[in-house]
């Protein structure tokens, strides 16, 4: 089916950026819905709610990061595509799976947590730090997944 590993590596980049980006998009969306509701009552809370809405956006960044690293390793970014074998392509693909999957699920979960945090600051704007920490608790797993993806990637030589 595949004669070279390049397409597999690109699939890996797509998994990383695509799934993690989906998670972030849903997460930021959910948080944004809650934020708009709060701001409809008190427009002065725009800045605070925006901080919380931005938090679930990092999974998409982590995914993009992995995708970019993979694409530049095989030369899709930069111009000269390196012909890699199927084994290497599969390795790069698998390296992208952790951040893709966990970025997707944790982005959604973090979005919900941040939406709850936004409701929290609707009543108690002084407690924004706590709302942020709840969100950061979820993000830990995206960070760990990125770590594994990156370590796997860093040890694949083309």
């Amino acid at each position: 089916m595949f004669t070279s590993g390049v397409s597999l590596a690109i699939l890996g980049a797509a998994v990383a950026a695509g799934l993690a980006g989906t998670g972030s998009a849903i997460g930021v969306g959910v948080a944004g819905e809650a934020a708009a509701g709060v701001v409809s009552e008190d427009p002065g809370k725009f800045g605070l709610t925006l901080l919380l809405q931005a938090l679930p956006g990092t999974q998409g960044i982590y995914g993009t990061l992995m995708a970019f690293l993979v694409l530049s390793k095989i030369g899709v970014i930069g111009g000269n595509i390196v012909p890699i074998d199927i084994e290497t392509g599969l390795r790069l693909l698998f390296a992208c799976v952790p951040i893709g999957l966990v970025g997707w699920t944790s982005g959604i979960a973090q979005g919900k947590t941040c939406a709850a945090g936004i409701i929290l600051i609707a009543k108690r704007p002084g407690e924004i730090a706590k709302g942020m920490v709840y969100g950061a608790m979820v993000e830990t797993y995206a960070v760990l997944a990125l770590l594994i993806s990156f370590l796997a990637y860093a040890n694949i030589h083309v």
């Binding site: 960044i61 990061l65 970019f68 690293l69 960070v143 990125l146 770590l147 990156f150």
Partner: peptide
């Protein structure tokens, strides 16, 4: 202890995203 791996992950992510935009 593993939770501090975020130091590395965030360091990488802000550096890589910066270079993505430059590229």
């Amino acid at each position: 202890v593993l939770s501090y791996a975020r130091l590395m992950a965030l360091m990488l992510s802000s550096a890589v995203i910066a270079s993505v935009f430059n590229a």
